[in-house]
Design a protein around this nucleic acid. Sequence first.
DNA 1: CCAAAAGTGTTGGTAGTACACCCATGA
DNA 2: TCATGGGTGTACTACCAACACTTTTGG
Lengths: 228, 228
Amino acid sequence: MPAIQNIKVSVDAVVFGYQSATGLSILLIKRNVPPFKDSWALPGGLVKDDESLEDAVARELLEETGVSINYLEQLYSFGKPDRDPRNRVVSIAYYGLVRPDNFSLQANTDAKDAAWFAIKELPELAFDHALIIQQAVKRLKAKITYEPIGFELLGEKFAFSALEKLYATVLDRPIDRRNFKKKIMQYGFVEETNEKQALEGAGRPGNLYQFNEQKYFEYKQNGINFEL
Amino acid sequence: MPAIQNIKVSVDAVVFGYQSATGLSILLIKRNVPPFKDSWALPGGLVKDDESLEDAVARELLEETGVSINYLEQLYSFGKPDRDPRNRVVSIAYYGLVRPDNFSLQANTDAKDAAWFAIKELPELAFDHALIIQQAVKRLKAKITYEPIGFELLGEKFAFSALEKLYATVLDRPIDRRNFKKKIMQYGFVEETNEKQALEGAGRPGNLYQFNEQKYFEYKQNGINFEL
DNA sequence: CCAAAAGTGTTGGTAGTACACCCATGA
DNA sequence: TCATGGGTGTACTACCAACACTTTTGG
């Protein structure tokens, strides 16, 4: 009955990385084709006819940035008729988390350049990507209160203060160190190792901690209530 | 660079209704075109080139069932390459809530028939619609714990036990009447009216209650924690 | 010895949970 | 008078929030 539909389907990825020094960062690419040539944008692109949405995200990320991901989840779909000035594109946005050891970038094909930007210092963004990022941050913030988080963002071993800073950063408010540690330890998905932190600057070196993957994923599945 | 993309974009709607007698129901249509001719399916269809996703859902719902909706929210996008046997279709699923006074159905155009099905007695469904419904139920269940719900599902005035049964139904577990009432009333988004329940069968008639829309939507926005 | 970060316990308030009896109505 | 559903209060417990001093290291 209707004329042939002329809508394209794309995926976009909001990829978060975390480092104690810079805090939460997002991976962006610099576009080298119009529209928005030379603007920064989320990695992403058109879905191929025979690949799943998840495969498309992973492929685009690898092509455009060389980053491989530890966690990927669908965020929201954006479909306003005019969000792309060329033609109609419905984009399914995903958000992902990567660990510091996967931070290395390699620009490629569509991307003139790829870079990490601290979440507080994002540049102007192409299309409605600022909106997409805003949604992703909101989701991350919500998620942290009903699921453990951190395993996909921190390295294998980490200082407890790194986890604490991560929560404080995402929630954007200070956290009481003692209550936080009590709370986290009582769940048992974080355990102490017997290694000590390598020193950076002054201060007493702390122990290193690691996630107990078994318990971590149990809590992740069952969705415990946090309430920090 | 790639061959022209050949993917269609559709929307599907999981519409919930609630009645004390039957509990939670979902609105389905009987397909009158192949594939899955004569199967039950979610209302939905292809998005037009110039309409937003939300408009498409509302239009399809009206065309196919004649039902108008009190609440609509995006659920998830489904994009497995083989989910539609004809050609590739990515579907953005929405879920909606309607009040009893909007229950009336009028089949039309694409739909041979439309009907409400109790959630415990769903028929075989076309495509991956069973999966979509499963996700919608999960979402509704999650939502109820961090946002008030009910305004969009109950009538203007309702017996307190209706609200209680709604929660018990969605959460699929018994609820202590006294604690529930204490909890709800303490938030203040439900208020007593001075009307009494019209009797149906035996029992002491209760008061009717209504939502205080102002407070209801405040809580909805700020996302309070429920924990029943 | 000073600065910086890590480690650690106690107390009070609040909110959740468990639980049982009486009341109003129709049949 | 019986069956059905509506209405209500208390006591216990568990969790959250607030809060400060000591320890280890480098400079």
